[in-house]
Structure formats: C-alpha cells, structure tokens
C-alpha cells in the first residue's frame, strides 16, 4: 500500500460558503460526553469510527440510555468508556469482563457493553474472556483489534501478525497470532462476528444484534493503528489500511471460525460466524435453584438492594 496521496481541492476556497450553519448538531454527539472531546486517539486511528458506529447503534436501538453501561479496560480502546455519555467504567487492565460480570449480575436491568482492545481482552484478560463466554453471561464484548499495544508504544500483542515488527519484537514476530472468533466460539460465546472499520453499516447492525442477543456476544473489529503498527511496518496510513480492509475482505456468514485466522496472504473473512441459543448464566442459575429449592428460592431482583 502506498501512503495516501493528498488530493487538494481545485475549488477556489474563497467560494466556500462559511455563512451557513448546520441546522442540527451532529446527532452522534448526543451519545458522547462532549465536555471530554476532542478524544485522545491519533489521526487515522479507527477507534473513533467504532465509537461513531456504537453511538449510532445505541441511537437506533431504542434502549433507554440510562440502562446501558459501558465497561472498558486499559489501553487506547479502554478509553472508550470515558467518552460515552452512559454509566461508564474505566477499570483495570484486562479486568473489564469480571467488572462487567458483577455489574450485570447485581443490576439485572442493565445492558452491559464491554469495550476493549485485543491485548486487554486476550492477553492479560484472556482467562476472564474464556470463562465469561463459557458462562454465557449476557453482555456484548466489542474488541477493537489493532494488532498492537498502542497506549504503551507498539509492543507485540497476541494478535500481531507473523513477521510484523513491534518494539518488543524488533526482528519480526515469531509468535502465531490468536484467531479471536475461534477462541470465542470454542469457549461458548453465543454470538460471534468480525468486521473491520471499513464495514460501518454492518458494524452498526452487528452491535445492535449483539446487544439484543441474549447471552455472550463477541464482535471483533479490525482497526488500523497508524502511529505504531502501520508506521513501524511501513504499511501506510490509517486510511490505507482501511482501504486494504475494503479490498481484502470477504463476507462469509456462518463461516467455520477455525478457518477465519488472519494471515498475510489470505483474505480477511468477515461476517456473523456464530449465532446460537444457549441459556445465560442467570437463567441457568434461576432454573437450577428453582428446580432444587422450589418456593424457598428468592431470585436476585434487586429487591434486597437497599435504596
């Protein structure tokens, strides 16, 4: 890929009409904490686009925004919680899922969305991911996969492609990357999808589906890190990577997740891979305790929560 050629407008900019204002504020901003903008993400980073899509998914979801909470770990994507105008929790590195577990179970009326990066969710937080998927906890996990640790300066991640150079793999990565949808599928996630930052409309739809799906939903979103991953590997700018996603993605809904690993040569398989019905942790618990305790069972409904 070549760096984007800067095509400058031919128009004489004196002609640009500055007198007109937009009749409405960008509606996406209503989902964001505007007093915290501009955000920290680099030019060409895809996380802002993912947030844009998430905001539009929320707006069209019909949910009361008071009942949606977002939980993030640490890292570039971990900052998403801080920008969403929702109950938002910026927790510790890798531990967004267990935090979300407690939040969701103690307040069953909440829709809980976990927003974090590949390193946060699959390296330091990998074990929590496996067990939350196994339990089929009712939450949506949005993983922005930028193939690197952005916040700390571009170290090798569990998703870094083979041969790529990173600051702690200076001579090329020799660790095989993780196939995230396969891991999620194997662990028992009941909704698994992968899209890229190019696929904005599909992403909005997938995020809505993931929020509505009862159970553990996982969406991997491939996103460029121009400052650390792309620059170090001479892969151009953010927009070049998104163009690459556009040109090299193939849609395979229902694909066997075993076959969707990211490689240097194969196309990027995108789509909804897994959609299965499975009782959630809370439903299983309530059913089991009702079956064994009968009338003595008092479900957790927040009725004992002192207010």
């Amino acid at each position: 890929m070549n760096p984007t050629e800067i095509m400058v407008s031919d128009a004489d900019e004196k002609d640009v009409d500055t007198s007109r204002v937009a009749p409405i504020e960008n509606p996406v901003l209503s989902m964001l904490r505007q007093d915290r903008l501009p955000h920290i993400w680099c030019p060409g980073c895809g996380i802002g686009t993912v947030v844009n899509c998430f905001s539009r998914a929320l707006m069209s979801s019909g949910h009361d925004m008071n009942n949606v909470a977002v939980v993030s770990g640490i890292g570039c994507t971990g900052r998403v919680a801080g920008y969403m105008n929702l109950d938002s929790f910026h927790t510790t590195h890798g531990r967004s899922i267990p935090f979300a577990t407690g939040l969701r179970l103690a307040n069953p009326g909440l829709k809980v969305v976990v927003f974090s990066g590949d390193g946060d969710l699959f390296a330091i937080g990998g074990n929590h991911f496996l067990h939350a998927a196994r339990r089929n906890l009712d939450m949506l996990i949005v993983c922005v996969n930028n193939f690197t640790y952005g916040m700390t300066g571009g170290q090798v991640a569990p998703t870094t492609p083979l041969k790529s150079t990173q600051s702690t793999m200076p001579f090329g990565n020799f660790e095989p990357p993780m196939n995230l949808p396969f891991v999620a599928d194997a662990a028992g996630a009941s909704y698994v999808a992968r899209w890229t930052v190019f696929h904005i409309r599909q992403l909005v739809r997938a995020m809505k589906e993931g929020m509505e799906h009862k159970g553990f939903s996982f969406i991997e979103i491939m996103s460029p890190c121009p400052t650390l991953y792309l620059r170090r590997n001479k892969l151009g700018d953010g927009v070049d990577q998104v163009r690459y996603f556009k040109e090299h993605s193939v849609l395979k809904n229902g694909a066997n997740t075993q076959d969707v690993a990211i490689t240097a040569t194969d196309p990027i398989v995108v789509g909804t891979f897994v959609e299965r019905e499975r009782p959630t942790w809370l439903d299983s618990r309530n059913a089991q305790l009702t079956a064994t305790l009968g009338d003595r069972f008092v479900p957790y409904g927040g009725q004992n929560v002192q207010k």
């Binding site: 984007t4 407008s9 128009a11 030019p43 686009t49 953010g238 927009v239 998104v242 163009r243």
Partner: peptide, 21 residues
C-alpha cells in the same frame, strides 16, 4: 475538530470531497 485522516474523502461514494488547501 478534524485530524485529517482522509476516511471521509476515501470512502465518499460520490467522490466529492477533497482535502483543503
């Protein structure tokens, strides 16, 4: 607010946007 990432220019279906001078 713009950071010049060119996403809008690149993916405009009508190809009607360009960078400013």
């Amino acid at each position: 607010v713009c950071k010049g990432c060119a996403y809008c220019i690149e993916f405009c279906p009508a190809d009607c946007l360009r960078f400013s001078r």
